[in-house]
Nucleic acid binder design. Structure first.
Lengths: 339, 339
DNA sequence: GTGAAAGCGCTAACAG
DNA sequence: CTGTTAGCGCTTTCAC
């Protein structure tokens, strides 16, 4: 058997076994922390492992165990989106961070189209033990059906939870938006308007309904709402339309920071100032708002934490431990200079 | 042999072979596009594959072929960095985009410390066929030694290419910075200053030397240089120091957009305007600059392309095809309203 | 507790 | 061109 031990390449289980003077089975047990190995033998094996600098071969292990120890993260490309939206980077970071302490690997898949055939094949082809799919504002759950065959955790509430049992972690958009509007009225603004997000996206509708709810809670009301697509230019456009209505406005709640920044320019174009004439509050707390002039008051969304929770949930799911179907994260109002 | 065909789970090569009435070897050949299979047999096999919805088992394949078809992407966490720097997201996107058309998978590894032991083990443990490491401004090549045992491609020129033969793709920082300064003098600014990046990072030194070179090319000179760490606050600080010198300044070249944005605030604090009193040009073209007021004139860095090229290079390296050691990408001056 | 033996699904000589 | 024959490195009954 000794002659079977090749010298080049990586050390194998067999080499460790030889070195430690035990069988491969025993080494395997030690590696997998099996309880039924006598402490002394385990020690010897452990020493051999360290000595040889042995690292188990993932492919071989996964071939027999039927588990890949890999988790896919699917993010929609939407061309510019991934690039322009700091949110994704943060979520990925959170996921990677959590996974670092586990034996799982993160496989990134940036989707060109929506739910391509190729990606499906990959996910269903036994390449990963589970999948994470993020869509930020869109609520796109075109991967919903996958969950019948593979553990899947979504980032963001699904637009319509048809299957009814999708696992996801989301941010409490409603409460967060309430705190934003609350802040506006608390600082004496009474003629409020809002730049809403698309009404076919969960965060879009939640943040808008929070606007109305909070207003009426204070005996106020407003029909000054214009919709944007979450991009800076769309925010500027919406603001111009709002201003064009000719009604007085002293406070704006934008459904996200990018649109709030867009609103800044429209407000300045009109010769008005922030927050002098119009106070502005955004949502997300990304670098668009934090580096703007004046720094934007906004609602912080715990993106990294969202990634962590998603990772935590998918791992639990894979390992068949009990998990909540949905996890909702709290937001935090960050008061800066715009309101 | 027929009784060996289990019905549950995923279809195997053997099942396809049975269905097509050929040997497993033949199926394998078809799957791997081997030229030596008669067209008609190939067709039958192909049909069986489609019929059974067969997808080759990666683990089994990689176990025997000794290739994982996976490529790792290592990015330094640097806590806030990944989160705040749009550059990383863009590179990752480029990499993923290129890899989408290949059989390779992208494994993301976000580094906590610098070059942790755990990551090394992972990379050297045969989990991936190659690695991509990005460090943006830092030029950190603490993974250099890895390249002796694993194909590695770096993003950004190494600080000191000790081993002399590291593969990397970089942006032409010098030429890009020259075009920025050139633009400043072309628009009539003569009292130029620069906010340089750290002088222990390649982009920091290249962009600064370009400043001096371009100036002298026009018979100008300037000792108005202050250094920042590429973050917005550091840019503001540097600008304040510059202004505090009391010498007249009518143009600023900031080594990156984030610092340029920081400079904006310092300039305004001083009661000056952009570009009225001081023209500002940045470098990178990220969303910090594009959404600022006024929109920042800057040097666009092809981040996505950089990712694509890195991916292309690593794949070529893995497949032992000839590749250039270094690839340098051109930049492009984006003229907006700040200069 | 520990070892022996039997594969996991696939590729790669080697014959025919 | 196609089938046969060996394993790749590891886990896992099943005996001892």
């Amino acid at each position: 058997m000794a002659e079977k031990l090749r010298s080049g390449s990586m050390p194998t289980l067999e080499m460790v076994a030889a070195e430690a003077g035990v069988s491969r089975a025993t080494v395997s047990r030690v590696v997998n922390q099996s309880p039924k190995v006598s402490p002394d033998v385990a020690a010897v094996v452990q020493a051999a492992i360290e000595h040889l600098n042995y690292v188990p071969n993932r492919a071989a292990r996964s071939l027999v165990s039927r588990r890949t120890q890999a988790i896919a993260m699917v993010v929609p490309e939407s061309a510019a989106k991934v690039f322009d939206d700091p949110f994704f980077a943060a979520v990925v970071q959170g996921v990677a961070q959590y996974l670092e302490d586990t034996d799982y690997t993160l496989n990134m898949i940036i989707e060109s189209g929506s739910a391509s055939h190729k990606t499906r094949r990959y996910l269903l082809g036994g390449n990963v033990d589970g999948a994470l799919v993020v869509s930020h504002h869109t609520g796109d759950h075109s991967y919903s059906e996958l969950s019948r065959n593979l553990p899947v955790v979504f980032g963001g509430r699904p637009l319509s939870d048809v299957d009814g049992d999708n696992y996801y972690v989301d941010v409490d958009n409603f409460t967060g938006a309430c705190s934003a509007v609350e802040h506006l009225v608390a600082s004496g603004r009474t003629r409020l308007a809002t730049i809403a997000g698309p009404q076919d996206m969960p965060p879009g509708v939640d943040r808008l309904s929070a606007f109305h709810t909070t207003l009426s809670k204070h005996g106020l009301t407003s029909d000054l709402v214009e919709t944007g697509d979450f991009s800076p230019p769309s925010g500027a456009e919406a603001m111009r339309r709002l201003l064009a209505r000719g009604e007085p406005i002293d406070g704006i709640f934008a459904a996200n920071d990018q649109m709030a920044i867009g609103a800044y320019s429209a407000i300045r174009e009109a010769g008005l100032s922030v927050p002098g004439d119009i106070a502005v509050v955004g949502f997300d707390d990304d670098n668009y708002g934090s580096t703007a002039t004046p720094p934007l008051t906004t609602v912080r969304q715990p993106s990294i934490e969202m990634g962590r929770r998603m990772a935590e949930k998918i791992v639990a799911l894979i390992e068949k431990r009990a998990v909540d179907t949905v996890t909702t994260l709290n937001t935090e109002l960050v008061i800066r200079d715009s309101a």
